[in-house]
Amino acid sequence: MNKHFFTLVMVGSILFVPSFAYAYADPGSGIFLWQLLASGFIGLLFYLKRIITFIRGLFGKNDPS
């Protein structure tokens, strides 16, 4: 039962993943790959930003004024 449920979820999520069928601008090749690599790095910055916001929040709470 669990195995069938899992398969169903996997198949369902693949079906619902949006495709690029309607995009028609040329995404490039080298530019596209650079964009992916840069995005990976920016993704890390996202977590870093969250951590900094969290720490600021802590200091904000501890601030007596």
Binding site: S29, G30, F32, L33
Partner: peptide, 29 residues
């Protein structure tokens, strides 16, 4: 981009697979 072009061409269509993040805030960021 010029240096990466060869690599992108070699990977073919798979390089254009959707990159979906579990957190939509991260995608937007």
């Amino acid at each position: 981009p010029v240096l990466l072009k060869g690599k992108a061409v070699k990977q073919g269509a798979s390089v254009y697979q959707p990159r979906r993040m579990s957190d939509p805030d991260k995608s937007r960021f």
